[in-house]
């Protein structure tokens, strides 16, 4: 190698080293990236049943009509994703009037094994009227499943008022339609 070539070689190597150092000044052996991760709040309810018929029928002479009739076929399907505050499920009558001398009651039962997520707190049986009555509390992030037997079983009970003084006010009717509206606390 001539001296001239030697100098050229050294120059070339020097340039390459310089280039590598320039790259290293920007990039290193670690690198980061920022991810924005998000999930929307979800609050969904659906009742699985159609119209429920509850009639208090006659019994033997000398007895009152049936004192109560219950139906537990309704399932309430739920999907909930909360941010921080648990939700409450409430029920009220939004159309129709329960006949005088009778009561319409509601209680939610434990859902089946399809229910996933936060355990909830089931309330005691409530007598329905036009005011929201809490039937399930502490609903967190959960879902009930969507099959026919999934969801909270809802037991509606149509009963005579325990106050016998109201018995005389009972009147025959061919069917009074009552609409019960169930509401879960909205996203907050």
């Amino acid at each position: 190698m001539s001296l001239r070539n030697g100098i050229l070689t050294v120059l070339a190597l020097s340039l390459i080293t310089s280039a590598v150092q320039t790259v290293k000044a920007v990039d290193t052996n670690t690198s980061t990236t920022t991810l924005s991760l998000g999930i929307p709040e979800v609050s969904l309810l659906k009742v699985s049943a159609g119209v429920i018929n509850l009639s208090l029928l006659q019994r033997n002479a000398g007895q009152s009509i049936e004192t109560s009739k219950s139906d537990s076929t309704t399932r309430l399907l739920v999907t909930s994703v909360i941010r921080t505050t648990n939700r409450t499920l409430s029920a009220k009558i939004t159309s129709g009037t329960v006949p005088t001398g009778t009561l319409l009651k509601l209680v939610a039962r434990q859902p089946n094994a399809s229910f996933v997520g936060s355990a909830t707190t089931l309330g005691a049986e409530v007598t329905l009227d036009a005011t929201d009555r809490s039937i399930v509390t502490n609903i967190g992030t959960c879902y009930s499943g969507t099959a026919a037997s999934d969801g909270f079983p809802l037991r509606f009970t149509y009963a005579l008022d325990s106050n016998t003084a109201t018995y005389s006010s009972l009147r025959a009717n061919s069917g009074v339609t009552i609409i019960v509206t169930l509401t879960m606390t909205a996203a907050q």
């Binding site: 290193t28 924005s36 998000g38 969904l44 659906k46 739920v78």
Partner: peptide, 22 residues
């Protein structure tokens, strides 16, 4: 080593059917 893209956004969509899992 370098990451060649900007910030990434990952948003899980909700569901529309009550009872359904996310």
């Amino acid at each position: 080593m370098a990451v060649a893209t900007g910030d990434i956004e990952l948003q899980i969509k909700g569901v529309t059917e009550a009872g359904a899992a996310l």
